[in-house]
Nucleic acid binder design. Structure first.
Length: 442
RNA sequence: GCCCUGGUGGUGUAGGGGCUAUCAUGUGGGCCUGUCGAGCCCGCGACUCGGGUUCAAAUCCCGGCCAGGGCGCCA
């Protein structure tokens, strides 16, 4: 007739599915959600409606509901969006002990058939198929559980930072310089100039230390054009970055330690249902995470018959060997200066070591941090030593010439931390619309 | 980028020179008054692409693309 079908008009939801239990028996409710399953027995029909909170059963016995209601229910297809007005009644045979006897049915939007994947998971789809139809995939409670937990994680982290005197900032993701060295950047066209997508807020948050803002944090996207193809790398990730003035590595490790503990506690407390759905348990370590130095790590790795020489970064095999020994969360400290970036502070009197640290969980690197160099001359020297050109760092270096305080900070991979919180083995599971070497859509 | 493995209905799979291509789920229709992985009946729907070998290729070979796993890369 026209395109304006399925309008809400004056219909509004009165109860979420999870709010339908024996307590509400006898009352009239309006349910809105997706058709999870339909079981039509001819004389009685069951329709399971799902919303963000769970599921509720609509029961339509032909003896008790009108023929026109049954006709409308028979038009439904899986995953269609409906609103149903009805009366809740106790029913020991129904899930949750309650079911809704429908009085009015409003089809808000029919779903085409067949579906590109099965959200009820009778036949499990592969990750690629799932990501191609991610919105449908997220309708599954074991998928949305991951993002509910991730949301709690961000909530706790923001609360933690605000409670500890950090100011939330945003730094540019469109950057001019490709001279930071190291990782590959994505080049883009910026009007008549070349520009890049930011790989890290590192230089900006350091410049903020010269602004007098004292302690800042940022939660934002980072972009890395590396052609890696693993379960723990993406080309677009979310980084949780913190930087604090008048602080050193020990101070910010303590902050990181406390923040992680708080996240673990809050997720345990507020996401018990989601953890249950995922079949995952979180153990909250008591007190401070163990610390292992780089030199000790080499000994551990070597003792497991994995080769590693001083001055090398940990190979994947070395990470696994170390993770097997340490287990859980632990800090890896006192890294060689030569394999750390120019902005990392060397150890006074023993310059081949640095004040850099990583936070690990088993064999997964979650965070890197350090005391930073705040002295202009040392910074220039370290930039040059790494074969980089100080001229490319003009606006960054300028901040070190007019009163830069000693400072330290770290960055945490938010998506990797989510893997730990949810027990996911593929980082793609922990990002709504992941960007990897091969995937740019949806 | 390298190595290994793979690509068969919408989804997940079996098969592995000659088939009408297996099964499940789904989907369309029918029966059915307590399902909750409902059941039963009927129908629908597929061999990644390009080249080669062969009387014959979904099957063997080469290449592309894509995927899974591992590694490398990841200041």
């Amino acid at each position: 007739m026209n395109n304006l079908q399925g309008l809400l008009k004056d219909w509004r939801r009165t109860n979420y599915a999870s709010q339908c239990d024996a307590e509400i028996a006898g009352s009239d409710v309006t349910i809105m959600g997706w058709v999870h399953e339909i079981r039509d027995f001819g004389g009685i029909m069951f329709v399971i409606i799902r919303d963000v909170t769970g599921r509720v059963q609509i029961t339509a016995p032909s003896k008790k509901v009108g023929e026109e209601i049954l006709e409308e229910l028979r038009e439904l297809r899986k995953e269609s969006v409906v609103a149903i007005k009805g009366t809740a009644q106790e029913a020991p045979k129904a899930p949750n002990g309650v079911e809704i006897l429908p009085k009015e049915v409003k089809i808000l939007n029919l779903a085409n058939q067949p579906l590109p994947m099965d959200p009820t998971e009778k036949v499990k789809a592969g990750i690629d198929t799932r990501l191609d139809s991610r919105f449908l995939d997220i309708r599954k409670e074991n998928v949305s559980a991951i993002f509910k937990i991730k949301g709690q994680m961000f909530h706790t982290i923001r609360d933690f930072f605000y409670d500890n005197g950090f100011y939330e900032i945003n730094t540019p993701k469109l950057v001019a310089s490709a001279t930071e060295g190291g990782t590959e950047l994505f080049p883009i066209t910026y009007f008549e100039k070349e520009a890049f997508l930011g790989q890290s807020p590192q230089l900006y948050k350091q410049m903020m230390m010269a602004s007098g803002m004292d302690k800042v944090f940022e939660i934002g996207q980072i972009f890395r054009a590396e052609e890696h193809d693993t379960l723990r790398h993406l080309n677009e990730a979310v980084s949780i970055d913190a930087e604090a003035s008048f602080a050193d590595d020990e101070d910010v490790m303590k902050i990181l330690n406390d923040m992680i503990i708080q996240v673990l506690k809050d997720v345990n407390e507020n996401c018990a249902d989601e953890l249950d759905i995922l079949g995952h348990e979180i153990e909250v370590p008591s007190g401070d995470f163990p610390v292992v130095t780089y030199d000790e790590a080499i000994d551990i790795v070597n003792s497991k018959d994995v080769e590693m020489e001083w001055g090398e970064d940990l190979s994947r095999e070395a990470e696994k060997a170390l993770g097997d020994t340490m287990g859980g969360f632990y800090f890896l400290t006192r890294w060689p200066s030569e394999i750390k970036p120019f902005y990392v502070m060397p150890v006074d009197g023993d310059e081949k070591y640095s004040h850099a640290f990583d936070l690990m969980y088993n064999n997964l690197e979650l965070s890197s941090g350090a005391t930073r160099v705040h002295q202009y001359d040392l910074l220039v020297k370290q930039i040059e030593e790494r074969g980089l050109n100080p001229a490319g760092f003009g606006s960054y270096l300028k901040a070190f010439e007019y009163g830069m305080p000693p400072h330290a900070g770290w960055g945490v991979g938010a998506d990797r931390l989510t893997m730990v919180l949810t027990g996911s083995e593929n980082i793609r599971e922990c990002v709504l619309f992941p960007r990897d070497r091969h995937r740019l859509t949806p």
